[in-house]
Amino acid sequence: MKHAAILDRLAGLGGAKWEIHYRARALAAQGRDVIELTIGEPDVPAPPVLTEVAVAALRAGRTGYSDGRGEAGLRRALAERYSRSAGRTITEHQILCFPGTQTALFALLLGVGEVGAEVLVGDPMYATYEGVIRAGGAAPVPVPLRPERGFRMDAADLAARVTPRSRAILLNSPHNPTGAILSRDDLQAIGEVATAHDLWILSDEVYEDLVFEGAEFVSPLAFPHLADRVVAASSISKSHAMPGMRSGWIVAPADFAARLLPLSETMLFGNQPFIADMTEAAVRAPSPVAAGMRQRFAARARRLKTRLEGDGPLRVHAPQAGMFALIDVRGTGLDGAAFAAGLIEEAGVAVMPGASFGASLGDWVRVALTVDDDRFAEACDRIAAYARTLAGVRA
């Protein structure tokens, strides 16, 4: 039987990257004591004040069809929020709502990419980026995010990879998996490259509310001269500890949002009204859980760095934001995949091989900062002990 070319383009880009995560679940089901540091699941439940809004909306019958752009109240709330943060007027005609950032990015990349086109994207990158780029036929062009530069994209590296086929630059700041944040100067320089070559700037900003103390987030939406080429995507998944609610959006130039609307309606026809009501309430007030997550994740990242670098061959990259930290495992003599595979079997700690996020992280692993403090401390001890055994074998 024949199948569509999209299935070939996406072959190997799905669950295979999460093999260690699934292995951890299987071992736990067998009764093994496994500490799971693989996925970015918030460490607190959804805020009750917001779930009550959703329940009330359900009881009020907010279960019918939605406006294809998203519910009007939510779009107004988002327009007001982004007008404040961008320092310029954002209208509700610039907003489209989606079930989560993932769906928003899928639609965006279908809207700007096609067979023969190229999308410039930082390497390392979030695990699904290659898939959303390839789905419509475009090719990802990796731009190295160098550890010595704090994993922030360098405009010179970007410019060196632009070709006549380039359509867009896909940014992620704060960044998963590195926790890096692009500075204002970084964005200014990237914007100059985009302007010179007439490229879209697509900005995934889902970790905006999880910026650690001492760091600053800047969106490319804040640059008025880039307004006609910037599209930002975000959601309540991380900021409000609601990844399962699947509620996200994009902020785009009004004409592009109008052009993208038929694609969005073909896929989804809007988001669920009762979830939109809850999301509107979330957008109109500060998150009741984000500050606590910021403090806990930053503290755990510091604990990881202190514990591992003080005892053994591992080196930790300190994140500026988000839910993850990176460990450089080269000192053990193993690459990230081998280290992660051994760690789960020998020490009962599940981490993600860095290669799941791009070839440049082949010698790293990603650690989620989202388990409680006692379990996280135990995981740090187990990782350190496992690394010592490897160093002893090499010696």
Rank of each mutant, 00 (worst) to 15 (best):
M1Y: 14
A4D: 09
D8M: 02
G15P: 05
E19W: 05
H21M: 04
Y22D: 15
R23D: 14
A24V: 06
A29L: 12
A29D: 15
Q30I: 05
E41L: 14
V44K: 06
P45W: 02
P45F: 04
A46V: 06
A46W: 07
A46K: 02
P48N: 06
A54P: 02
L58E: 13
T63K: 10
Y65A: 15
E80N: 09
E80S: 13
R81P: 05
Y82F: 15
T91Y: 00
P99F: 08
P99C: 07
T101H: 05
L109Y: 00
D123P: 00
Y126Q: 11
T128C: 04
Y129E: 09
Y129P: 01
E130G: 14
G131L: 05
G137N: 02
V141Y: 04
P142R: 05
D154A: 15
P164I: 09
P164S: 11
P164D: 13
R167S: 15
N172I: 09
S173E: 12
P174V: 06
T178N: 05
I181M: 13
D185E: 15
A189L: 14
G191K: 00
D204V: 14
P220S: 08
L221R: 00
H225A: 15
V230P: 03
A233E: 12
S234M: 09
I236P: 03
S239I: 01
H240T: 11
A241W: 02
P243N: 07
M245C: 12
I250N: 03
L260D: 08
P262D: 14
L263S: 10
N271I: 13
I275T: 07
M278I: 03
A281R: 03
A281I: 04
P288A: 06
P288H: 01
G292I: 05
L304V: 00
R307M: 11
R315L: 11
A318V: 07
A318T: 08
A321R: 01
A321M: 12
M323W: 11
A325N: 07
L326K: 10
G331Y: 08
T332W: 05
G333K: 02
G342T: 07
L343M: 08
E345T: 12
M352Y: 00
W364S: 14
V367Q: 01
E378W: 00
A379Y: 03
R382M: 06
A384R: 10
A387D: 04
L390V: 07
R394W: 06
